[in-house]
Write a protein that binds this DNA or RNA. Structure first.
Lengths: 251, 251
DNA sequence: AAGACCGTTCGACATTATCGAATGATTCTC
DNA sequence: GAGAATCATTCGATAATGTCGAACGGTCTT
């Protein structure tokens, strides 16, 4: 682990959390001398990874990170496959569809298909959700035992709502159940009023590389049986296109 | 400039260009010993900035860059303002609307409003276009003389089509004209069959912070006079919301 | 008007990144 | 199927490089 590179990424991390920070704020949050932080910040700035406000001197993320994010999406075969089937799933279910991948203890949304009712909805690509508090995350974790160990070895499970699973034992037993069904559900565990259903997506090597699922109002629970089937089928279809031989793959 | 941080960002840069690279490919492109590149890559990997394919051992960008990109968009006041007015401009003009910012010699699209004909269109947020070959870029450059100097001090202007402006003198004179009108146009200079119209957006300090414009088929050129007016008004309205006292601001 | 704060620059120092060499795994070739 | 070649990775000695204290100049506050 290279110290200065590590520090540079940590700086991007605090700017991610706090939007706009002065040099001294960045330095104090990372417990670095201001001059050290300054050198790293200027290097990041030279590449457009951060920009400095002319008036306030404060730093924030720069356009270069957006460019990187966009290229990341383009490189993902999962995403291009998900686009087609998300559309179908949104039509069949009548709900918004999300596809996500796991990074450490979070799910990052890589595709979002709005509810097919024509209303204007915020695109959700790039947003992150704690894995243990989402259907997408649980669907992935159920087939990635190593990641579960990593997750539980870290900080306590963060509570998002009163329904969030924060007991490791409860989470583990639910994941076992999800692995059996290849279907994860979530009821107001991340956001009050929202529920979710998701299923895992596997690649040619049988690895769980993502999950696809729908978001629906908690009031609409339980949805029709056909909705569960539709989610499973979308996941199975994408997995097949990625070269997976079986679905679901056993843990 | 911190060498190792600089190298880390360069690595992200080559992965951005080439999607998926082995360690030795990364190393040779940057003229680094493989062991040096390896150390940096592992640090980036530890933060999810790059991921390594299990089977092929090749590296590619990771989900963390998408997360960063999304937060960048959220921090931009310009973007939130642009959303509302883009919608209006798309409706009035009947064309797709783009809002972009300048980084070095490129324009990065920070918002895209699809053509209001209901057809399915690829979102273009995050894509980059050479500044000298786009209406958005020229609208910005006309009000940022320093950036023009930087642009022309670098490599030769890259030709995208036969119409691309590659002569610095021609570009400079066109920019003078654009600064006078506060309106830039482009006809098949970036993509054959596409034309564009754009106007600069200023913030409270009078700096050109972005540009908004429309993309239309080259065959539809010239559009109605009202279309030009609509673009200028969108830019003026956003500038006003950002606190700009006048529009356009003199160079 | 004086003080406090902040971003920035500079340079001596030692920590830290670097890179060659060695290892082990995997793939290609014959 | 055996041998060769390529590749990612590890390790450690070396010195190059990042680090951080101190000082400067600017701006905002009291």
């Amino acid at each position: 682990m290279i110290q200065s590179v590590d520090r540079a990424i940590r700086i991007l991390g605090v700017l991610q959390g706090a939007r706009r920070l002065s040099l001294s704020e960045v330095a104090s949050r990372l417990e670095l001398p201001p001059s050290t932080a300054h050198g790293i910040l200027k290097t990041l700035q030279a590449h457009g990874m951060v920009v400095q406000d002319r008036d306030s001197n404060r730093y924030q993320l720069g356009p270069a990170v957006l460019k990187l994010g966009n290229v990341y999406l383009d490189t993902l075969e999962l995403r291009s496959r998900a686009v087609t089937w998300s559309e179908e799933l949104a039509r069949r279910s009548g709900h918004a569809v999300r596809t996500g991948v796991l990074t450490f203890d979070e799910v990052v949304i890589i595709h979002h298909e709005p509810r097919p009712d024509g209303s204007r909805q915020m695109p959700e690509v790039g947003i992150v959700i704690p894995a243990h508090a989402s259907a997408l995350g649980k669907a992935l974790l159920a087939f990635l035992p190593e990641q579960v160990d990593g997750l539980l070895a870290g900080d306590k499970l963060r509570s998002m709502t009163s329904e969030t699973l924060i007991d490791p034992a409860v989470l583990r037993s639910q994941l076992t159940e999800i692995a059996r069904e290849a279907l994860a559900t979530e009821r107001e565990e991340a956001v009050l009023g929202e529920a979710g259903i998701a299923a895992p997506i596997f690649d040619a090597s049988g690895m769980a590389v993502g999950a696809i699922g729908i978001v629906l109002p908690a009031a609409d629970w339980p949805p029709a049986e056909s909705t569960f089937t539709a989610v499973r089928e979308a996941a199975r279809n994408i997995s097949r296109e990625l070269g997976a031989s079986r679905w679901p793959v056993s843990v």
